[in-house]
Computed example of a mutant assay.
Amino acid sequence: MRVSAKICGLSTPDAVDAALAGGATHIGFVFFPPSPRNIAFDRAAALTAAMPGETGRVGVFVDPDDALLDSAIDAARLTALQLHKTPPERTVTIRARARLPVWAAVAVKTRADLNSAARFRGAADRILYDAKTPEGAALPGGMGLRFDWRLLQGFPHPLPWALSGGLDAENVGEAIRTTGATLVDVSSGVETAPGVKDPARIAAFLRAVAAS
Rank of each mutant, 00 (worst) to 15 (best):
R111G: 15
F31W: 08
K109C: 09
V190G: 01
L151Q: 03
A5T: 05
T133G: 04
F29C: 07
S71R: 15
T79A: 10
P87Y: 08
F205S: 03
A107V: 03
V184H: 00
A112K: 13
P158F: 01
T48Y: 08
N171K: 00
R111P: 04
S187L: 01
P36R: 05
A123T: 12
L68S: 11
D70Y: 08
L114N: 03
T86L: 09
V92L: 15
A44D: 12
A123D: 12
R111M: 06
V209E: 02
A203D: 11
L145S: 08
W149D: 01
A98N: 07
A118D: 10
P101H: 09
E191P: 00
L68M: 12
A162H: 08
L163K: 10
G142R: 08
R99L: 10
A21F: 10
D148I: 04
A40T: 15
R90H: 15
V106G: 04
D185Y: 09
F155S: 03
T192G: 03
C8Y: 02
V102R: 09
A105H: 02
G165N: 07
A40G: 15
M143D: 14
A49R: 14
R126P: 05
T178Q: 12
P160G: 05
D198N: 15
L10F: 08
L114W: 04
A123R: 10
A19C: 11
G173L: 00
L83H: 01
G154F: 05
G166P: 07
A5Y: 05
L10R: 07
R57V: 09
I176R: 01
M51P: 02
A175D: 00
D63F: 09
L206A: 03
A131E: 00
G180A: 10
P199E: 04
G122E: 11
L128W: 02
V172M: 02
L83Y: 01
H157E: 05
I127L: 11
A138Y: 09
D17N: 15
L139K: 06
T55M: 13
T93W: 07
A105R: 02
R2A: 14
A98H: 06
D70A: 15
D130C: 02
K109T: 12
D74N: 11
L167N: 06
A72V: 04
A118Y: 06
G166K: 02
K109I: 05
L128N: 01
